[in-house]
Design a protein around this nucleic acid. Structure first.
Lengths: 215, 215
DNA sequence: TCCCTTACATACATTCGTGTATGTATGTTA
DNA sequence: TAACATACATACACGAATGTATGTAAGGGA
């Protein structure tokens, strides 16, 4: 039987195509989950988005769907660890402007919502849960640690710091959810600005004991 | 063939049981979606949770799964409209303490997360989307209107009010997500308190032009 | 008391997605 | 240049969930 030539079959040589296919499958997976949800991210849909067939997925990431999802989670975590390390060397003195930029970057990143979708799905899929739980937990810790560094000036041991971290997580994920429905970065960036303004102002006053006339 | 007697077959008379079954199926659906996600909320699982068979669902809510989900959405919306109306008559003068209570109640309500799950699922299911979109939009408007009434003192027309509403939505949904993973009301209530404290304090100062020494 | 409607329970077919196996073409190396 | 490994494409079987149809029991009105 004859094999139809696909779009990615032009230009690059065959042997050099594997890493590219690998990368395209990962971004395709994230994008499809971002747009259609985990349940809508079928192997066939992902393969079509990447411009390959299901066989390519099998070859690159293993036989099962969970293998693919797990690989994508690992890739995201690895990327974020690198980002975190480079950010840490770049900013020696942490303050609110870094947290501001961090949240803005995080809620827009389809990978953020991808991880949420995977986590939700893992609630009803024991096999998936077993495979990805370590990655999700690591990302959780990474985000926490990152926040502690970004907000270092507000004293991690201080009262309310744990609530603070949970708030940042909830806000980021809530914005990621809204963003997946309605990608309006300008609006959501203004939301982040408003909230960070209020929080930094409030925390600054709390530290200095200037809370008179508050509601 | 012989029919096995089920648990709900004792006590109440047969004709009086329908409204009860109806209600139990609705709460079962919400709970199962809350715990297992939309994909994990199978007809069989929902029926088992409610203590009936799939036939009961068919009889009460129609032939398809979308019929059931739609009915639950309608029920939630109706209930929230009633809550909204009673809350509006109860509090003539709105302030931040009402918003505080409203968010605390909303993020804990499994129905909040149910609606988010349904909305996510509707992204990859055209038929579901067509049926529930009106309800989701109505709930959106209801929440917006409710917020405007609760925060009436901060002048809806003022700058940043739209950002304010989106923030409340993102926070509520983000907390609902965290809550579905880890039901720790005390922790999340403290998060709400922290944020509302900061926001009310900040907005109060903005109104009075007292923003010196802010970060 | 007979019939009819309500309120379910049960059974089966169809579909859709995955898991698995196998086929094909190209670069590479001996 | 022949064998082999890589990098995919294709085909099919199986299972789970849904959609659909039919069966059964109990209460109420004529």
């Amino acid at each position: 039987m004859k094999f139809v030539k696909l779009a990615n079959d032009e230009g690059s040589s065959r042997s050099a195509r594997s890493p590219e296919t690998h990368g395209r499958l990962i971004t395709a997976t994230i994008d499809v989950v971002f747009e259609h949800g985990y349940a809508g991210a079928t192997m066939a849909v992902i393969a079509e988005r990447a411009g390959v067939t299901r066989g390519a997925i099998q070859h690159c990431f293993g036989d099962t769907r969970v293998d693919l999802i797990t690989a994508v989670c690992a890739d995201i975590l690895e990327r974020r660890q690198r980002q975190y390390l480079s950010a840490m060397t770049e900013f020696s003195q942490a303050d609110f402007s870094i947290a501001r930029a961090g949240i803005k970057a995080a809620y827009r990143d389809p990978a953020t919502w991808f991880l949420v979708e995977v986590w939700i799905a893992s609630k009803s899929d024991a096999i998936l849960k077993e495979r990805v739980d370590a990655y999700l937990t690591s990302e959780h810790y990474l985000a926490d640690e990152s926040l502690e560094r970004m907000l270092g000036t507000t004293e991690p041991g201080a009262i309310g710091f744990r609530e603070y971290k949970y708030f940042m997580r909830a806000l980021t994920r809530g914005l990621a959810l809204e963003y997946s429905r309605r990608p309006d970065p300008e609006l959501f960036d203004r939301v982040v600005d408003l909230v960070i303004d209020a929080l930094s102002f409030y925390l600054d006053r709390v530290k200095n004991g200037n809370l008179d006339r508050s509601e």
